[in-house]
């Protein structure tokens, strides 16, 4: 049935296109403009990003050097009462020796690999649901939206930025882009780096009930971004 259905739809589209009234469709394909090279680590970009994310109730922590990250992560984790954490593999976080440093501060990584079998997958996911924080890197940030951009993929699980009530991301100050169109025009390959690219602009929120803003409805209620030089 599938091939026939496909042919039916394509026939109908092609017949339609002959008669379609499509204003402004003529001419060559528009080429969206963006920067062709990564932006420099400007103080302005970091300032704008910080302002935008703070307005969304996200928190930005500046680390003067990479070796300050373990203390920052531990302090944030303890603030949220977490003892374990979900995380990307250490090699994707840009902080050598991070997991050992966190272990010595009482924080153990909870490793996982969701199985396909329905029953064991459910049990596995249930076990992860109680973990207090998630720790990830960030591939880029968007200044005007206060968003961090994460390419999830091998060794870079999605649940670390999604399941726990608090999410901590480590971002390089050199990867702050002015806008989403700038980033996607310059680095389209991000879409295919893994199965999931996500831009996160602040903690999970809803305003469905009486237009009243409430955080943490499904995703993390708290978002911390540690910016390293």
């Amino acid at each position: 049935m599938s091939a026939a259905a496909r042919a039916q739809i394509f026939d109908s589209i092609r017949r339609g296109l002959v008669r379609a009234v499509l204003p402004d469709a003529a001419g060559s394909r528009p080429t969206p403009e963006g920067r062709s090279s990564p932006p420099s680590a400007s103080a302005d970009a970091l300032e704008a990003f910080t302002r935008a994310l703070t307005a969304l109730t996200g928190r930005v922590h500046r680390a003067a050097a990479v070796d300050m990250v373990p203390d920052l992560v531990a302090a944030i984790a303890h603030e949220h009462g977490a003892r374990g954490f979900l995380a990307w593999d250490e090699s994707h976080l840009g902080v050598p020796g991070l997991f050992a440093a966190l272990a010595s501060r009482g924080l153990e990584r909870v490793d996982y690999d969701l199985p396909f079998d329905a029953a064991s997958r459910e049990a596995h996911a249930l076990a992860l649901a109680g973990v207090g924080v998630g720790l990830t890197g960030a591939d880029a940030a968007i200044a005007d939206a206060g968003a961090i951009v994460l390419a999830h993929g091998p060794g870079r699980g999605r649940l670390a930025s999604l399941l726990p009530p608090a999410h901590i991301a480590v971002l390089s100050a050199r990867q702050i882009w002015p806008t989403m169109p700038d980033l996607l025009a310059a680095r389209p390959g991000l879409l295919d780096a893994g199965s999931n690219l996500v831009a996160i602009a602040g903690p999970s929120r809803t305003a469905d009930i009486e237009m009243t803003l409430t955080h943490g409805v499904h995703g993390p209620k708290y978002l911390h971004v540690i910016v390293v030089p």
Binding site: A52, L56, D89, Y112, D113, L114, I142, D144, A145, G146, A147, H152, G153, P154, G155, R156, G157, R158, L159, M180, L191, D192, G194, S195, N196, L197, V198, A199, I200, A201, G202, P203, S204, R205, G219
Partner: peptide, 26 residues
């Protein structure tokens, strides 16, 4: 400026290969 989650999905979870591990979720 952007919704909280702009979620872009490219294929199902990627399996492990001889080069390295697969994706742990998805």
């Amino acid at each position: 400026a952007l919704s909280v989650y702009t979620n872009i999905i490219t294929g199902p979870r990627r399996p492990a290969t001889s080069d390295g591990p697969g994706e742990p979720d998805g």
